[in-house]
């Protein structure tokens, strides 16, 4: 039931415990306990709202930055990744296979601010040997949700 519960919450975090219980065919108390346990153990890290910022304002900028790093003895990539993750504007940090080491997703109010953040904060860090910044121009799909409306084109009624 844990996997099914997580799949439902991943689909819509606002399902109530009663609704989740109905959909899973278990008791409401059981759902509450399971969610509490998943939160406590850190499997569930939080609940957020998926916002299409483009329809709110046009000064919300996201960039994906490829970083190449010299790994440090003992620590590998851990320490530098944690230091980067500490910045408020950094939304995500991933260790990557392939042509570069860390993928950093940064959000900011303007292209300029994001660019300056990369130049001043990231590029200058010890161990960072190169950066490549790619700005997001448009979101078509985010977190599994399409960012454009696709109206229900079925008839109202069919047998």
């Amino acid at each position: 039931m844990k996997e099914k519960l997580l799949a439902l919450l991943n689909e819509d975090a606002r399902y109530t415990a009663a609704e989740l219980a109905t959909m899973l065919g278990v008791g409401e108390g059981e759902v509450r306990d399971a969610v509490a346990e998943l939160e406590k153990s850190g499997v569930i890290r939080g609940y957020k709202t998926l916002i299409d910022w483009a329809s709110v304002d046009d000064v919300h900028v996201t960039a994906i930055i490829e970083l190449k790093i010299v790994p440090q003895a003992d620590e590998g990539f851990e320490q530098i990744a944690e230091r980067i993750a500490g910045f408020e504007h950094v939304e995500s940090v991933y260790l990557m296979s392939g042509g570069y080491d860390l993928c950093v997703i940064v959000t900011g109010q303007t292209f300029q601010k994001v660019a300056m953040f990369v130049a001043k904060r990231l590029a200058t860090m010890d161990g960072v040997t190169s950066t490549a910044t790619h700005f997001v121009l448009r979101r078509y799909k985010d977190m599994g949700v399409a960012m454009c409306d696709s109206p229900d084109d079925r008839g109202r009624i069919s047998l």
Partner: peptide
Amino acid sequence: IRKFFDIAETMDDVISLGVGE
């Protein structure tokens, strides 16, 4: 359900549970 269908098609805020697809 033809008549019924015609009424439903003219309303613009219908919440339908009527389709078989």
